[in-house]
């Protein structure tokens, strides 16, 4: 439903483009994860979809319509929940919700109904009369999310929605977001927390330095086309073995090498044991997102 084609974007006076030829298709009713380290171009991509930046190169379409036309026809179709607490600290929870509902053009009865709906959805009943500046980090995140849902958006853009919240609130937020596609809302979820993305996203795009590095279902992304063995040893790998294995040091006594078949694994473990290098832990074949990202960019997602 959201198609992005050859999208490039360069900020004024920037030396490198923030986005460089990105093409994606985000299907309806699902949660689409947009992963990348800080400065990768996630927020720029979100800002272009939200209409905060003007499109210069490439095309974005919503349900087959160019984005600008789709936004003009259905102004509430796309909602952005920014990373900042984008509401009024001096207003109460209820006043904030009524204000943003009003700016969406909601009339009295529809406004009452939608405000009540999002209060229930984000479980803000206990704090409706409390000023936003007095809310905890988790409640502020919930209010931020609730505001985004006031217009019953078809596409919800979430920019790092769980930054700075306690584990309970994070769990609640993730559960709530995971429930959104069932109510007909497609979610684009940007984050650099891989566990979150692994937990709730059906499809993922990994971008870095404005380029798309990988795109597909979570399974596709995590499946390593090249069986890699990552081992964590109790002692440094002796040089002769390191040469023979063509192993790459990836951390403190951590090494990575290609291993064509799982059948070779017992032999490798025996050799290591005989050289006085017991294995502390290892992974083979299926990788987590951090490892995939490391493999693709030689950088950590949290850089």
């Amino acid at each position: 439903m959201l198609s992005i084609d050859s999208l490039s974007y360069r900020y004024t006076a920037a030396t490198a483009p923030a986005l460089d030829g990105i093409s994606l298709t985000i299907p309806a009713t699902g949660i689409y994860g947009l992963l990348g380290p800080n400065g990768a171009g996630k927020t720029t991509l979100i800002s272009l979809i939200a209409g905060l930046l003007n499109l210069s190169t490439g095309h974005i379409g919503l349900d087959g319509q160019p984005l600008a036309a789709a936004r003009a026809a259905r102004p509430r179709a796309i909602a952005l929940v920014p990373q900042d607490y984008a509401f009024y600290p001096m207003l109460t929870t209820q006043e904030n919700l009524r204000f943003f509902g009003g700016t969406l053009g909601l009339t009295r009865s529809a406004l009452d109904e939608q405000v009540a709906h999002v209060i229930a959805f984000a479980r803000l009943e206990q704090v409706v009369g409390k000023r936003a500046e007095q809310l905890s980090g988790g409640l502020r995140r919930r209010l931020n999310l609730a505001i985004g849902l006031l217009g019953k958006p078809q596409l919800l853009l979430l920019d790092e929605p769980t930054v700075g919240v306690d584990p309970q609130s994070r769990h609640f937020l993730l559960e709530s977001i995971a429930a959104l596609p069932a109510a007909g809302t497609t979610v684009v979820y940007t984050s650099h927390y891989m566990e979150e993305v692994e937990a709730i996203c059906q499809r993922i795009a990994i971008i870095d330095q404005g380029r798309l590095l990988a795109e597909g279902t979570l399974e596709d992304i995590l499946h390593s086309p090249l069986p890699l063995l990552e081992i964590h040893l109790d002692a440094p790998l002796p040089p002769p073995l390191a040469d023979r294995y063509s192993a790459q040091a990836i951390g403190n006594r951590k090494y990575r090498r290609e291993l064509p078949s799982a059948a070779d694994l017992p032999r490798v473990l025996d050799e290591l044991a005989s050289h006085g290098c017991p294995v502390r832990d290892l992974s083979f074949g299926q990788h987590n997102l951090e490892q995939v990202f490391m493999r693709l960019t030689n950088r950590s997602l949290r850089d």
Binding site: A79, P82, A86, F87, Y88, F100, I147
Partner: peptide
């Protein structure tokens, strides 16, 4: 300034205000 710093102005823009 609160609106600008908190990103509220940006949010209002994204809402088409």
């Amino acid at each position: 300034i609160t609106e600008r710093q908190q990103g509220t102005l940006q949010r209002l823009r994204s809402m088409g205000v």
